[in-house]
Design a protein around this nucleic acid. Structure first.
Lengths: 338, 338
DNA sequence: CCTCCTCGTGGAATCGATTACATCGACTTC
DNA sequence: GAAGTCGATGTAATCGATTCCACGAGGAGG
């Protein structure tokens, strides 16, 4: 592969001049510029990004470590992150932690070794020593979706509180009184917050959330299935199950169906995170929708602000309720909604 | 951030010795080794992967350019690619082409500039000059899922021919005679092949595939919807629609439902590519399942073989039919299948 | 005892870029 | 006409690693 020296030789100038042309530095004669450009063209020269990064100490690369690529929510997040990053002149390297702290650490270390300019993380757990180090050591960092309390890092996330209140109002309006939740891991902020928001919203209607109605999931479909089976085995099963993410909702749907029961007649179902597939399930699933694309874009903007020396602010966007048919039909409510 | 010089100073040895310890070169005294290791620990030193890559001309990184990350098939492929690569000591940088040739080129160029060790591509189109160049220029390369005919690059893919025959047998057994297909872009191999396999299988039953029953899609949901509407508007609409990928099947489902019609009573539906969500749609969708994970792993193994100087072979794995309820029920067939 | 290996080690070149500094000619300005 | 300025260019240092080569010490073999 041709290097800058080959180009310099071909154009009959020094490597410094070639570099100047390539980085369009002002003081290069028109003549030299055209000769260099011609040589570049002739040799099919492309600058070596590795060498450039070593010298400039910038990789123009962002690292994104997410908890689970197979989860459509994170897929969409990753996509919007890459789009915005590209628009700002950065590439993105994605690391999939698969909800495993050890894998998360592996990716963080790998990205740090590659000297990425900044790190976007949706932490799987409460914060490994490595992550805390990274945050302190000065690598620009932004948390997205989930975060680690007590760490001085901007957070970009959605607040589901209001939407969960709307959801509970919807459920209450449909006559449901025994509401259960499939929670996410307590080690994650989203895992804890969603339970809290749910409990708080129930409180507003004089309902409480008994221990038996809090199932411990791990954001994967299988746990949704397991927890739902537990609920159905209760002497007094809940009337509604609220899954704290989309995959666990899927598992819940499975569990209900496996018993020959139906949603919403036998058990109503709602989920946190809206995804395109929820329109097509049987029945379509009512969900709390996060502004996923906007989250990804805002996170990248915040991170690039930090990288380029501007102050980065935390951002919180509102989630909203999308009513479909999985909790039952109410003639008074808007039912044209898909 | 500490460099190898700092470690050398701290340990009282030369940088050469530090490097030897780090790459466990045999001729280093036990004493020097422990002193270096202690210094590494004390300084929290991590080798700079950028510098290392510049010197060794290896990045231990694979590039993966896929057509559409939001498509669950490719998400799963990407996941298995990353897993296998990690097991073999490589990282993966994913580029999402979004079915756009210009974006595909952008990513290929970017990855080449970063001097990745090898490239895994599922080409969006028939082959841009850039891609052909890359293939010729010696960068190890492997095509996965889709490929470009006439280019000397190993291909790892699934052969759906037998499964499509099984599908047509299934449909024929259910009494369907008017079968239509929503094809993928003619620029892609999978787009063309699936139509061919379908036509061939129909031929075996004395059925043919009229032009009117071949709808041109682009592997995105919206095109599935549009084509299906076209089919439904035909004077003699088909009894079955076979979508050449999962997203177009989703669009087809939408279109049917939007007219107040039902699958499979009014129109049967089958898809190429099986995904977890097909179990949960209404009705569950019959699909040709590719061994996606195995494809990803085989592709990585082939690519790493090429990178490390071993010969790489093309691999073709068989797809299989998964019967669900979207084509109608047949008492004679296995219906316990989800 | 001398020679020849082997082992452990350090010095320095190298990878491919960027960039500070020096140089040189031409032009302005008094 | 001398001094200073400015634009275009080249030389060489530099980034952080790896690795070739040289060198000295110590042991084996004759």
């Amino acid at each position: 592969m041709a290097s800058i020296k080959d180009v310099a030789a071909e154009a009959g100038v020094s490597v410094a001049t070639v570099s100047r042309v390539l980085n369009d530095h002002p003081s290069v004669s028109a003549d030299a510029r055209t000769r260099v450009l011609a040589a570049v063209e002739a040799l099919g020269y492309r600058p070596n990004a590795v060498a450039r990064s070593l010298r400039t100490d910038q990789t123009h690369t962002l690292g994104l470590v997410i908890s689970d690529v197979m989860n459509p929510y994170f897929t969409e997040l990753a996509r919007s992150v890459e789009e915005e990053a590209r628009a700002l002149g950065y590439s993105v390297i994605i690391g999939n932690a698969d909800e495993r702290p050890d894998l998360q650490d592996h990716h963080v270390r790998n990205l740090l070794d590659r000297r990425i300019d900044g790190l976007l993380v949706s932490p799987t757990d409460g914060g490994s020593p490595l992550m805390l180090d990274a945050a302190r050591s000065g690598t620009p960092m932004v948390f997205v979706d989930r975060w680690i309390p007590g760490v001085e890092v901007p957070v970009v996330r959605a607040d589901g509180r209001a939407a969960v209140r709307d959801l509970v109002a919807h459920l209450h309006g449909l006559g449901h009184r025994r509401l259960a939740i499939i929670a996410g891991p307590a080690a994650t902020t989203t895992g804890r917050e969603r339970v809290e928001a749910f409990r708080e919203a129930l409180g507003a209607y004089g309902l409480d959330l008994p221990e038996a109605y809090i199932g411990q999931g791990d954001f994967q479909a299988e746990s949704g299935r397991r927890v739902t089976e537990g609920f159905l085995d209760l002497p007094e099963p809940p009337e509604v199950v609220f899954a704290a993410d989309n995959l666990m909702a899927l598992g819940a749907l499975d569990a209900v169906r496996a018993r020959g029961l139906h949603v919403p007649e036998d058990l109503a179902l709602a989920a946190f995170d809206d995804i395109p597939w929820f329109v097509h399930t049987d029945p379509p699933i009512t969900a709390v929708a996060q502004p996923t694309g906007e989250l990804g874009r805002a996170a990248v903007r915040a991170l690039v602000d930090r990288i380029e020396g501007r102050p980065a602010r935390s951002v919180t966007l509102a989630a909203r309720l999308v009513v479909r048919r999985s909790c039952g039909e109410n003639p008074a409510e808007n039912r044209s909604r898909l």
